[in-house]
Design a protein around this nucleic acid. Structure first.
Lengths: 189, 189
DNA sequence: GTTTACATGTAATCCGTTACATGATTGA
DNA sequence: TCAATCATGTAACGGATTACATGTAAAC
């Protein structure tokens, strides 16, 4: 029950899934093999220790399923401290570093965030992501322009892949903001 | 000088950069802070031990710059075994797992691959990537269609981000193949 | 003459990978 | 009955993060 311990990305992925509904470690492993969450390892050596850590930190609680001739399954449920940790994660503003490290982590956060976060948190996530993308995209484009002459064809193409990706993310975030269609801030006119 | 040791992604990134031109550890760190390769950590605790491992494995060689009043800089050069390791990396066919784990690793490989790989290796990389994307994209789309009803708005949007990303990658790979404009295989007509 | 940038390292810790280990239940 | 799937773990290892440590050269 130590508090304020760091939580790994896998930890957040597990917390987010457990938040959706109580699950066993084995079910979580299957989610990582069978769904687009496949970027996480489905190996028992990753998941079971991670669950044990989250439990030791008081974020989740595992209860062995009672019942007669059943295979023993330990079902994990989210505890209040776990929900609080998730909410702190959701509320983090999107930083430049988040964008540089890749969209994957941010999309994991956003996917779960819809479950319990209020509209304000969602809006802040999307607008701060939009801001960072709008700032970072021209940076990469400028880098490409500046180093064009010194780069191999494949180097230029790889950079172009990055630019296309960030452009697609920017289009996505605009579409996402539009999808929620919040009333404008600043008074009823 | 142990042989056949596993090389981490950071290891390949360092090998690829050293292949382009001999560099010091400090220069490599700056590359990770100042260029779109920022997804790698620029911390000395990551880079110097990684360089030491590559050197111990006989893949690179570091030589302390001679010369009078200079700050001591250790310049690393690629050894034949290092080039061979890179070439084996370049020649790996793109797998489904590569695509699931994310484009980042694949694009790192492709960016460096242009330096020394022959046209055949480049073509095989791009066509196998195209094949995997063409197979994986409809999989994700099908998953989205199947689970649409059980997902939150943000969950659906996050999945949509993934779909858009893979679509952008597919468009990119088609453009990349077109950019090289290889003569068709199978005879001169 | 003091801050900033250059330059290289080490030590503790954490955690993911890989491989091993165990046992129950279901279906062929 | 034998293989496959369900289900949970452990142990050794490797490598990245974080923080600490040290010293030189340039710039202000």
């Amino acid at each position: 029950m130590k508090n304020a311990k760091r939580i790994s990305l896998l930890g957040y992925a597990l917390l987010g899934l457990i938040q959706q509904q109580p699950v066993s470690g084995y079910s979580l492993r299957k989610i990582f093999t069978a769904t687009p969450m496949g970027s996480f390892s489905d190996s028992p050596g990753a998941i079971y220790p991670a669950l044990a850590r989250l439990e030791a930190d008081g974020l989740i609680q595992g209860v062995v399923e009672e019942g007669a001739g059943l295979r023993r399954r330990k079902i994990y449920r989210l505890k209040p401290a776990g929900l609080a940790a998730l909410k702190r994660w959701y509320a983090r503003p999107v930083t430049r570093e988040d964008v540089v490290r890749g969209m994957g982590e941010l999309m994991l956060r956003f996917a779960f965030l819809g479950e319990t976060a209020d509209q304000d948190t969602i809006r802040r996530f999307l607008t701060s992501l939009r801001g960072q993308l709008k700032a970072y995209l021209p940076e990469v484009e400028a880098f490409a322009g500046m180093h064009e002459d010194k780069m191999s064809v494949s180097g230029k193409l790889a950079l172009d892949h990055g630019v296309r990706g960030y452009r697609a993310s920017l289009e996505w975030v605009e579409a996402a903001i539009a999808a929620y269609d919040w009333p404008k801030k600043g008074g009823i006119s």
